[in-house]
Amino acid sequence: MLGLTVALLALAAGAGFAGALSGLGGGAFLVPALVVLIGLPMQAAVGASLLAVVATSAGASVAFVRDGWTNLRVAIVLECATVTGAIGGAWLAGVVSPALLEALFAIVMLQSAYFSMRKRDSDVLPASDPLCARLELGGEFPGDSGEPVRYGVSNLPGGSVIMVLAGVMSGLLGIGSGALKVIAMDQVMGLPLKVSSATSNFMIGVTAGAGALVFLSRGDVVPMVAAPVALGGYCRRDRW
């Protein structure tokens, strides 16, 4: 078992590193590695990966909130959508066949790679649309000169629909869905790219946590596999 444990630790840390380099996130590499290299059932691999995402993302959000980049209000509103999607996705993962899950995983990874390549900074919106203004979702971030730069937010319904999808993907496939979350905030809702990335990092742990709770309480987690995987994720966590 020592060899297996060391392999799981290394796979989780390596997947996190590859995920950060590619912009796809660690789950994109970890789930296939657990299924193909370790021989884990797809459902158990997804559960272990979600727990690793929780461990990896634990520090990032706190650092970004401290630095003033995370839009806490936008994060909380959109988390209503991602958590709903993640719970639905995690429930579906226990129902659909492993072969279908594997096929879905491949399709979603291709789509994530496409979105990652298309990621670009949009212009800062000077004002929020009426709904976002009513919810006071606009904010400010530290500019290059130190002066705060104000920005607006728009199209909350459109962003929320994509966030439900991001949540379903996270719960169903064991990924953080960070690329899709950033696209929704940056391209659909008009938030600045760095604010979108920081807010997405804050949200990833909560979305993955929602899915992980379903897997853990359903018993779709093999503790002696998931624990080393989560420890590997923790070793690669973003510093606090």
Binding site: I76, C80, I87, G94, V206, V214, R218
Partner: peptide, 19 residues
């Protein structure tokens, strides 16, 4: 909104127990 997210997380535990 935050209470909804909290309830959602707790509902995840119950959903997992149901199957």
């Amino acid at each position: 909104f935050t209470a909804y997210v909290l309830v959602g997380l707790i509902a995840g535990i119950l959903l997992g127990k149901i199957g």
